[in-house]
Amino acid sequence: MAWPVGTIKVPLAGWQVTDWSLPGPGIWGLAGPNGSGKSQFFSQLVAWGNKPQGLRVGLVMQNPRLQLTEATVWDQMTWPFQRGWSGRMKPAVATRAEQILAEWHLENYRTSAPWELSGGMQRRLALASMEILAPEVYLLDEPLEGLDLEHRVLLDTKLDQWSKTASVLVSSHVWQWLLVHTEWGWWCDQGLTWGRMGEIWYQHGLSPELPLEALWRRLLDKGAPVTPEAWANLERARNEVICICQNSHQIPSIP
C-alpha cells in the first residue's frame, strides 16, 4: 500500500516533486550529494498540510539535539504520552519506554539530561524516542552518524523490525550500508528519481572508496553479468563472481 503525498516543494534547494507517493512497509533509500535538499525534503514531509490526512509520520533529524527537548531521558521518551498537568500516563507506556531504553542501552541514563549525553547517545535517544511513538512512516536523516559499530548493528536490527509494519525512508552517504538495507529508493538532485539503489549507485556513486566497490564498477563498465548492488554484501559478491567464473571455466577449483 502506498501513501499518496502529492506535491512537495523544497524551496532552498530550488526543486519540487509532483504526484509523489511513499511506498508501503519496507526500507526505502534516499541518496544525493551534499546540498541537494534531502534534509529539507524530510522536513517538508512532516510539515503541516503536506502529509496525508491520518498518516503518522515521524522524523529523526540530522542533528538530534533539537529533538531532545525534555529535562531527562525518561521525560524525553514519555512526554508525548503524558496527560494533564500532573503528566500521568498509562502503565503500559512506562513499561514499553523502559524496554526500548534498555534495547538502546540507555537504561542507566534515565535521569540524565539529554544534553549531557555524548553525540552517539543523543542519536540513540532520538531514535528510541521515535520508536516509542511507533509511526507508520519513519524518516531517518543520516541515522548512522555518530553511532559506533555496536549500535550500527543494533540500528540494522531495528530497521528490519520496523520495516515489517512501517515505511522507513533513510538517507545516508554510506553506499555500502544503503545498498545492503535498501533495494529501491530515490536519487535526490534537483528533484527525485526513483530506481533500484544498485542502479542509482552505479549511475551517481562517483569515485569508489573501497576496492570491492571499484572492482564492481569496473565489471559493470565492461558489461559483466553482475548485479550492481551485490558488492555491498561480501557473500553475495563472491557468489556472483564464482558463478561467472564457473560458467567460463576459468577457475579449476572453487574454494
Partner: peptide, 24 residues
C-alpha cells in the same frame, strides 16, 4: 577475504584491475 574466497590463498596481492581481468 573476497579475493581469497574466489581465487585461493596466494592471490591476495592482486590489484583491482587484475582481478577484474581474471573475472571478465
Amino acid at each position: 577475504s573476497f579475493v581469497d574466497g574466489v581465487f585461493g590463498d596466494n592471490t591476495r596481492n592482486l590489484s583491482v584491475c587484475e582481478v577484474s581481468e581474471r573475472i571478465w
